[in-house]
Nucleic acid binder design. Structure first.
Lengths: 204, 204
DNA sequence: TAAGGATGTTAGTAGATACTAACATCCTTA
DNA sequence: TAAGGATGTTAGTATCTACTAACATCCTTA
């Protein structure tokens, strides 16, 4: 369906648009980076806007949150949280260029069907369901919505943070950060004074 | 030093550049939004690039982290963390347009003197010093650098998250999120099995 | 070999954009 | 009132950019 030529053009435009934003990239530039003539670009995509939109739809990676929550949860907040964070981080990484592109371009605010809004919105719902269940069972206390928002915020921040200033991490790896974060969030339920029962962690 | 006319132009350009990025904004547009003629704009700032840079330098708000860490800390992780988060959030809010502008424009990666890198970099150093001290006194366990990075990531994420999808918060306020976050991060030291002494929280 | 499709090349157009020159007008202040 | 500085207006230039037309060339395949 997508020819080799089209793919070259789409890949170049993804890279350039994500690096510079829509307006700052010229069709000539995209053609140059694709290794094709500008004419070929217009023959395949008619106009710049259409190229942009085709590229956008082509490269979005949809997350696998539903399967994660339905199949991989163990009712252990720490372990579950690590899986959730890793899954979200992976999706953020895969969509990195699309996300950057969206940040660069005009209205990155309140376009609800754009991945920047849609994906965390979906995850928020699933997270709230999960935390509600855990709360019923006594493994989680505190407000469910705030808990969900904080997890989302942390993950998005971690991703952006690594993107913006890589040198600030200095060897510290993301997985260690997540492990540390998950441990701190879950330790509350291990604490007698917090009111919840112990997690299943120490069962083994 | 900055005349009323210049201020109108600077404010309009801050708003427009932060909304659309450098390339997508025209000098005519800025003039229109400033309520002056395009000619006046060039008379004051010579060229678009210079206007942009002047605006950038004019509107950065430097953080008050140093005073915060030197004067306001109480050696109570939860209380201190809330103050730190609030201070950082306030600075992020004040620099919101500058940050958005930087996200929109080309190289928001690895420009170390830009506020997007410089400010968290400074805060990271101060946070690590603080956590080291707290660790010595037994109020904090776990890796100091990871702890600092996680706090930075959480805050940046919370800020970005509110910016990108406000509707996801649905009445939940930032302060409540921070309070919840700070409580969870500090509860570890209240937990006997975690090895640390109790915080000063319950002293009163 | 013949044909057809994809691609390159060249030249060009229409509109936008950053920026300038020259002159007119307004407002303040001495 | 006179003068000077700031501003507006108008016209214009050079450059860039998205996009088109026409023709040439290459590659595959029947």
């Amino acid at each position: 369906m997508i020819s080799a030529t089209e793919q070259k053009i789409l890949e170049a435009s993804l890279l350039l648009f994500s690096q510079k934003g829509y307006d700052a990239v010229t069709t000539k530039e995209i053609a140059l980076h694709s290794g094709v003539s500008e004419m070929t670009l217009f023959r395949h995509f008619a106009c710049k806007r259409n190229l942009f939109e085709t590229m956008f739809e082509t490269y979005i990676v949809n997350p696998q949150f539903k399967a994660l929550f339905e199949q991989q949860m163990e009712e252990n907040i720490e372990k579950d949280l690590i899986k959730i964070c890793q899954c979200y981080q992976e999706n953020l990484r895969k969509n990195q260029k699309i996300i950057m592109l969206q940040l660069r371009n005009q209205d990155f605010i309140s376009i609800s069907d754009a991945p920047l809004c849609r994906i965390p919105s979906e995850l928020k719902r699933l997270l709230m369901d999960y935390l509600s269940k855990m709360k019923e069972k006594g493994y989680f206390i505190a407000d469910v919505e705030i808990g969900a928002v904080n997890i989302l915020a942390y993950n998005f921040g971690l991703f952006m943070f690594c993107l913006v200033n890589k040198q600030l991490l200095s060897g510290t790896e993301i997985d260690k950060c997540i492990a540390d974060y998950a441990k701190k969030l879950s330790v509350q339920s291990q604490c007698p004074m917090a009111g919840g029962p112990r997690t299943t962690m120490e069962e083994k």
